[in-house]
Write a protein that binds this DNA or RNA. Structure first.
Length: 353
DNA sequence: CTGTTAACC
DNA sequence: GGTTAACAG
């Protein structure tokens, strides 16, 4: 397609035909055409793989790696995953696994020359973004620990990671409330950019001594189904999100793309064995709503209030929120009053009486 | 929840 | 270096 476009754009139709006849038919130079009659000759001419690969195949391709609760294809030349697949269920989202007990570290199974290190990310300006989220593995500490291997990590914009992408991951988890099975495949992309000279270039920063590529975009493919009900209704959505801060004004659907478009740029097909004819659009019926930014903020303000150790700290959180002009919800206000009462020293309480 | 940085032994 | 505490979206 590209070749044809290039040729017809640069040359006349007659010239194109001339080139065609030279290359394919060999009519002008008298080159003997190869035909099906020669097939046997070529067949015998094929070298034996045993000979060529006597000393093994180059071990540089994407390799499948299996962990407790996710599987990924790892690109050793980029020190990042190509894709990471996981299976979300309600059960896996509940438990006592604590991310504070986990540490980012290289997967010991990956040769160090093909692995990134924490030092690559330190001071780089980019955060270590999980592809399989830690929060999807509350049921098991070791499964959560697995997600902290750097094989599962890509350089990600901090605000994107903590904000939009975070809410995107929450959205995936919330889907388990409607569906028994949620399958998610995530990964980095390096997409071409149209530059001033009118040409497209793939350009990305690399960080640290390992030169870890900073993806221009991240993708997710989500497939949901209900095993319990007889209806085979499955829903699928593919998304490409730029690796930059994304304001809460943007809806998730803005980043939805046809699955094939993603597959084309990712160089991978997803859910190959799925009968796509039966599958419906995940985002139909208004199903692709991220949790509202306000609820998102209030959730963490609530957590901070619960952890506040002094009245001053509590007041600071309260005032900080007010300064941001985000009005507290009723729950937050109740929590504030509650904590205030709890943290109030006995003597102060006595003085009030 | 998502993370980083600074300080410490 | 590994762990802890404080901080930020």
């Amino acid at each position: 397609m590209y070749t044809q476009g290039f040729l017809t754009g640069a040359l006349s139709a007659a010239a194109v035909y001339a080139i065609y006849t030279v290359l394919v038919e060999g009519s002008l130079s008298g080159i003997k055409q190869s035909s099906n009659h020669d097939a046997e000759f070529h067949k015998n001419d094929i070298a034996s793989g045993e000979d060529i690969l006597k000393y093994g195949v180059p071990n540089r391709g994407p390799a499948l790696r299996y962990y407790r609760n996710h599987i990924l294809a790892y690109d050793q030349s980029k020190r990042t995953p190509v894709w990471v697949a996981e299976h979300l269920t309600k059960e896996k989202l509940h438990g006592n696994a604590d991310r504070r007990k986990s540490k980012f570290r290289p997967d010991p199974a990956v040769p160090s020359m093909f692995s990134s290190g924490n030092g690559d990310y330190l001071g780089s300006g980019w955060s270590r973004g999980h592809m399989a989220p830690a929060g999807d593995n509350k049921y098991d500490q070791e499964a959560m620990d697995d997600t902290f291997y750097l094989t599962n990590i890509v350089p990600q914009d901090m605000e994107n990671n903590a904000g939009f992408w975070n809410r995107f991951e929450m959205f995936c988890r919330d889907l388990t409330k409607q569906f028994t099975d949620v399958r998610v495949i995530s990964g980095p992309l390096a997409l071409p950019n149209l530059e001033e000279d009118g040409k497209k270039y793939v350009k990305y920063e690399v960080i640290g001594d390992s030169m870890v590529p900073v993806p221009t975009h991240l993708f997710k493919v989500i497939l949901t189904e209900n095993a319990e009900t007889d209806q085979h209704s499955q829903f699928l959505g593919a998304f490409i999100v730029p690796n930059v801060p994304i304001s809460s004004e943007h809806k998730l659907q803005k980043f939805q793309v046809p699955l094939e478009d993603l597959e084309r740029v990712a160089g991978v097909t997803f859910f190959d064995k799925l009968d796509k004819g039966q599958v419906q659009d995940l985002c139909s019926s208004d199903r692709c709503q991220l949790i509202p930014q306000k609820h998102f903020e209030m959730h963490f303000i609530g957590r901070r209030m619960e952890n506040a150790k002094t009245v001053e700290e509590l007041e600071n959180i309260w005032n900080e929120m007010k300064n941001k002009k985000s009005k507290p919800t009723k729950d937050i206000k109740n929590l504030y009053e509650e904590r205030k009462e709890e943290l109030m020293p006995d003597r102060m309480r006595a003085e009030l009486k």
